[in-house]
């Protein structure tokens, strides 16, 4: 590896990590106005971030929304991924395109659209619109994760189970689902992290009662400029890192994301 290339890698890493690092450092500043570089050290803003009521409510809301939305996405996603991988049917390509479309549509468009539809049916102030919106947003990632797991599974496994006298439902429960378990778990964790971090669409579809943590943070920033936000960002990064590390440790992200071929 040449020196120039090494330098490029270092610069790239610095570029990627800089915002997070700056925010984390600024979180410990003693001044009440967020600034960089810091002039002192205090845990005060972490305490405030953790005790501020809107953040606490937002955190619990976000956990609920993330858990429910990613569970729904996993169930819908696995059925669709299985159908697309194993069967030929009319409109298969169209269905695939529609489900992957949210990748190309701006989040605010999805949020705005969901809000308009929810308003028409009188559900604009409820949880269902928030959850539905998040399901749509995370579904493409779940589908991708499950596709890879299905593609990596030898179709002869199911054939062998059938030949041994197992009926199709038994094959599904004892061979197919256990084989997909890492993909299901990985897809779920990814969906949950994405949902937990989602802001743009959530801004449209949440109200005071249903606001998720990123929306609560945005509302806070509009009124205050102290480093509590930076402290919360640091906690966010910590939580996501822990989740990803666990996911990687037990499931292998390369396998879930399809960057690594496990088929022999």
């Amino acid at each position: 590896m040449t020196t120039a290339f090494r330098l490029l890698v270092v610069l790239l890493l610095a570029f990627v990590l800089m915002p997070a690092v700056v925010a984390c450092i600024a979180a410990f500043d003693t001044r009440a106005l967020i600034a960089f570089p810091p002039v002192g050290f205090t845990w005060r803003w972490f305490v405030r971030a953790l005790t501020y009521e809107d953040f606490q409510i937002g955190f619990v809301n976000s956990l609920h929304v993330a858990a429910i939305a990613s569970s729904i996405a996993i169930i819908v996603g696995s059925a669709v991924a299985y159908a697309i991988d194993r069967y030929d049917f009319a409109g298969k390509r169209v269905l695939e395109a529609i489900l992957l479309a949210p990748l190309a549509i701006p989040h605010f468009t999805i949020g705005l659209g969901a809000l308009i539809v929810a308003y028409q049916v009188g559900m604009a102030r409820g949880w269902s619109v928030v959850v539905a919106c998040h399901v749509v947003l995370v579904l493409p990632f779940v589908l991708r994760s499950l596709y890879v797991s299905l593609k990596n599974m030898d179709p002869r496994l199911e054939a062998a189970a059938l030949s041994l006298g197992a009926k199709p439902w038994r094959v599904l429960l004892t061979v197919t689902l256990p084989g997909l378990a890492p993909g299901l778990a990985g897809g779920w964790i990814f969906a949950a992290i994405l949902s937990f971090n989602e802001f743009t669409a959530s801004l449209f579809v949440t109200v005071q009662r249903t606001q998720t943590l990123p929306v609560a943070m945005y509302n806070y920033v509009r009124e205050y400029a102290d480093p509590s936000m930076a402290a919360l960002s640091a906690l966010y990064i910590l939580l996501t890192t822990v989740l990803l590390t666990v996911a990687n440790r037990f499931l292998g992200l390369g396998r879930i994301l399809g960057t690594e071929d496990v088929r022999h």
Binding site: L157, A159, S163, T174, V175, P178
Partner: peptide
């Protein structure tokens, strides 16, 4: 009873 080229043993 079938034996496949890939053996198709259940990995779990």
């Amino acid at each position: 009873g079938i034996v496949f080229q890939s053996y198709a043993l259940f990995p779990h």
